[in-house]
Every structure is written in structure tokens, then in C-alpha cells.
Design a protein around this nucleic acid. Structure first.
Length: 205
DNA sequence: GGCCAGGTGTAAA
DNA sequence: TTTACACATGGC
């Protein structure tokens, strides 16, 4: 094992200064409804494409639950096309917005009251998306793990059975640490890895 | 042309 | 329970 625990990994990632271009939070519009849209749009897509879609949505006023629910679905689809899989994703967005309205009334109440189980029962929301919404939209102390995280830990000598086991390896203090931890892992892996290999020298190995 | 990107649902085996 | 495939786009 090249690191003894998640805290050592966190310290090593901090020394890489990976979040220097994101002064406070790595995910854009942290704590807003736009994060929910971004989480669905980013599924099997590049975030650069997601940012184009989010800009389209914003320019058409589709950055609130009510506006998404009352707009023509053709407009929603047109806005999110750059991220791909727009038929599925537009349906996921619409049904999720309706469910939030039905069960929580508004976004603010949703962020305070929603839990993981509720999110996982929604179509189009799996574990990673549920945790991303909790972490980056609801500002909860929830660690998001993904394929990057799994590959990094594997390169460091760890093997995990599944998502939940990988997630439970992480020990985080608060919402800010969780948000930045996952962000640093993604940024590190984007810059220092391919599907087959991970360069560890930036972390002083 | 094939592979991949800040995944998930569904059907078949 | 696991595996294979669909979803769809643009960059390399």
C-alpha cells in the first residue's frame, strides 16, 4: 500500500494544488439546482459538453425546477443535446423535477430533507449520481467515488468489491472536505492517468 | 473507425 | 447474480 489511509491520500493531493483554478468548490454552482441538472447530464459524458448544455439551459431560463417543468420538452432536449443521450436524460430530469416538487415542494426544502434512499428510487439516479447530488447540491458530508477513484486506489494497492466498499474506505470530516476530496481525485486522474495506467510521481511517490 | 468521457436501466444468460 | 448492450455526442 502506498498510502496508509484516506487522510494521507488527502494530504498528498493537497500538495498537488489541483484546485487552484476553483477557489472554493470544484463543482460549478455548488449548492444550487444546476448541480442536479449537471449530475444527470454528466453521466457517460465529458464535463466540457455538460457545461455547454448548462449554459444553454441557463440562457433559456431552465435553471429552476418550475421552469423546467413548464417548458416545452423540445426546448429542454435542444438545450441538453451537446451532452448526448438526450432522450433518456430529458426524461430523467423531468421526472426528477416533478418528484422533487411533489415530495419536497421546492429545491431548498429538498436539499435539507432528501436522503440517499429517496434519490436511488428515482429513475436515472444511481449511487454515484445520488452521492454527487447529496455532496454538491445538498452540501452534505458524503464522499463521491467513481471509476477514477477506483483506478487511483487500485494503483495505490487497494482492491474493492463494489461502490459501497470503496466509499467506506474514505474518512472525511465535513461537506467541504468531501467535495474537495473527490474533486482533487478527478482532476488528478484527468491530468495524470489513462485507462491503463496512473502516474503517481506528482504525489511524490 | 474505434475508444472514451465526472453512468444507469434493462433484458438476457 | 452477472454480463451485454443501449443510450448519443464530439474529440482524439
Amino acid at each position: 500500500m502506498l498510502v496508509s489511509d484516506s487522510r494521507e491520500l488527502y494530504e498528498r493531493l493537497l500538495t498537488c494544488n489541483l484546485l487552484k483554478n476553483s477557489p472554493k468548490f470544484w463543482w460549478p454552482s455548488y449548492g444550487t439546482f444546476e448541480v442536479v441538472l449537471g449530475v444527470i447530464l454528466t453521466q457517460n459524458s465529458q464535463f466540457k459538453r455538460v457545461e455547454i448544455s448548462l449554459e444553454n439551459l441557463k440562457n433559456n431560463g431552465l435553471n429552476t425546477i418550475d421552469n423546467v417543468l413548464t417548458c416545452k420538452s423540445e426546448l429542454l432536449i435542444e438545450c441538453i443535446k451537446p451532452s448526448g443521450m438526450y432522450i433518456n436524460k430529458s426524461n430523467y430530469i423531468l421526472t426528477l423535477c416533478q418528484a422533487i416538487k411533489d415530495d419536497f415542494n421546492d429545491f431548498k426544502n429538498f436539499t435539507c430533507k432528501v436522503d440517499r434512499e429517496w434519490l436511488l428510487s428515482q429513475k436515472g439516479i444511481g449511487k454515484e449520481s445520488a452521492d454527487s447530488i447529496l455532496c454538491y447540491a445538498c452540501k452534505r458530508n458524503v464522499m463521491v467515488v467513481d471509476a477514477y477513484t477506483n483506478r487511483l486506489l487500485k494503483a495505490l494497492g487497494y482492491e474493492f468489491e463494489d461502490y459501497d466498499e470503496l466509499q467506506s474506505w474514505f474518512d472525511v470530516d465535513d461537506a467541504l472536505m468531501a467535495a474537495n476530496f473527490h474533486g482533487m481525485i478527478v482532476e488528478y486522474m484527468k491530468n495524470n492517468s489513462t485507462r491503463k495506467s496512473v502516474k503517481l510521481d506528482k504525489m511524490r511517490f
